[in-house]
Design a binder for these strands. Structure first.
Lengths: 197, 197, 197, 197
DNA sequence: TATGAATGAGTATTCATTCAT
DNA sequence: GATGAATGAATACTCATTCAT
């Protein structure tokens, strides 16, 4: 699937990818129909097989594309954040991305479950790479005594991620999400100050 | 699917359910084969359609069965727990259930994603019902000043749940899971005392 | 594909086989459509896959069925033949079978070419087995001095077979076949008495 | 497909034909891939459609090319043969051509079966034309009393052809072929002197 | 009542042919 | 003229569901 592409072909491939993402996000892998994706993309079925070796590959590339985009967005938001704003900022970053890219957001999370074999390592690779800088800064702050000792920053970031996920997946997943402010308050309080007095 | 069942029929239905759970947990909804489930259960394909109206219903009932069982187990472990042991106990409850019921544990979590439509409300219903007592106790402790104000206990419990999930799904989902102790320390520290000093 | 069949199922399988033979004989392997064969046989597509594991197997069984039938017919005709009638009788046997089973006759011959891998050894096995008695008798006659020495009977029988084939395949294959009597005279003369005076 | 071709174009067309023959001979009509043939020939797919109107035409021309070549070879070998050497010489001619052009030899024979519609009349045309001289000589010899009366020479030549075919197709088609000498002895004996004493 | 044989809708993928570059 | 990217018709096979036995 690697050959030098003209500008037109790059656009073509992108159209296919967009159509595939929409379909996979809505219907999942098994219920998505290559023919329908082709129609949506405005290309022939054959074109899909020119750019992607098979349905699974198309799915994989779709996930990759979305995951990349999403964590670029999230890590950008975290660039210059004080430690005491970190939880809130990360939570809000999820919220913001979700608001504008509901489909993609859900897709990334679902993909991990639907096709665990390859997706999982893809996800961790991308996540680790994109969040690398963020983790480094957290560690600097730990050294400066600004955040509590004994916290593994990689684990921490993933915790906040997954909790945020929970509540944005949540239109679907969690009824509490309706009350966004209450949820956010709980999350930031717990993460910043802990449960115990 | 509702008729008075003899003891024999109840056993029959249970055998089908067990076989279905095993298949759905391993292969997911779409790749599971009704014929194969029937064979595993030691019944004819027709029998499945006597007890369950269709494949989706069978899936739904399978998830319900597992979710029930799992949260019975978890809530039992939390019965008489001090607030300062709460996070650790809940985390350990996940760990314990997971250790003995890996298949079921993963199935419950995946099911939410694979078939969101009906599963989600099922899950929240069961979760809310089983964790009701637990939440009530947490609230009592909050009133007594033992845990921090401003925390919605339902949200809190689900946060801990999902974080625990994250790291037990993690054979598959998260590389950090290998180092169980480090993960647990981070989780309990963050939840108990917060990130910030 | 081997299970105890009821009388009904045996009929069913036979209907499929007949439809398959008709299609393969007319259109060859690649142009034959499983769906169309099912329709002709008056069964669902699925039924074909119950009785035959795949298209290739169906083809194989079709050829086997026809080859069996054809050489049963031919060898029966040769049962009590004098050596000086042998060539003519064998030639006529081909002619007779062909007249009543044109489709099958052509199919057997074509199959050898279309799917050489397995067909060829099948053909030789069946041919050797069915013609065994015929060859033995020829050899007895050779010992009694009634037919010329130095002739390998197996080779001889196949020669006559293939020459007969040539002229019955011939509606399609050979224009000479139109004049059946002339062809037959040449064939019997050559085989019985040779070319040279 | 008829236009004045430059020397370059003639070479181009020939390269395509050679590649097509190789592919058709090995894989048959249906399994041969135009794209692969183009690649082997070192031209674009489009070029094939410049020189041949479609796949069937390409197959037809491939067969024609090979049949021409083969019967040129065979008839040349028979140029100055005594009648009593005729059978052996023709048989050997097949053998010789086969030895040096196994692929082509098999292709010509198979093609008749695979695409009977047009191939058959092509074959008979070429065969009749190339063997014309040979048949005439046989007839002269018949008139001179050197060969038996009542033999249609066209039928005879085809008989010998097809029998030879049988045993050279036979790497694949006939187990007897292993013992070449025994086969040849039987064939020449039968054709020259007949079966009966 | 239980069985599993039969049904046929549904789908990924290939490949001859066309045509823009 | 030559190329090879794009097209989309064509097709074997699976599997949820039904229903005769």
């Amino acid at each position: 699937m690697f050959f030098k592409m003209t500008k037109n072909q790059i656009e073509r491939k992108l159209k296919i990818l967009k159509a595939a993402i929409a379909s996979f996000a809505n219907s999942g892998f098994h219920l998505s129909d290559i023919g329908a994706i082709a129609k949506t993309a405005g290309v022939g079925k054959g074109a899909i097989y020119r750019y992607f070796s098979n349905k699974e590959e198309l799915f994989f590339e779709s996930v990759k594309f979305c995951t990349d985009e999403m964590y670029d967005f999230i890590s950008a938001k975290l660039e210059n954040t004080d430690p005491d704003q970190f939880v809130e900022t990360l939570f809000d970053a999820h919220k913001d991305y979700y608001s504008e890219n509901k489909e993609t957001y859900l897709f990334v999370t679902k993909a991990l479950i639907e096709m665990p074999e390859r997706m999982v390592s893809l996800f961790h690779t991308i996540h680790a790479q994109k969040m690398q800088n963020i983790c480094r800064k957290l560690e600097e702050n730990a050294e400066k005594g600004k955040i509590r000792q004994g916290i593994d920053t990689k684990v921490l970031v993933k915790m906040i991620d997954v909790v945020s996920n929970l509540f944005f997946l949540t239109d679907e997943i969690s009824p509490e999400a309706d009350n966004y402010d209450a949820v956010k308050k709980t999350v930031t309080t717990v993460f910043n100050s802990g449960i115990l007095k």
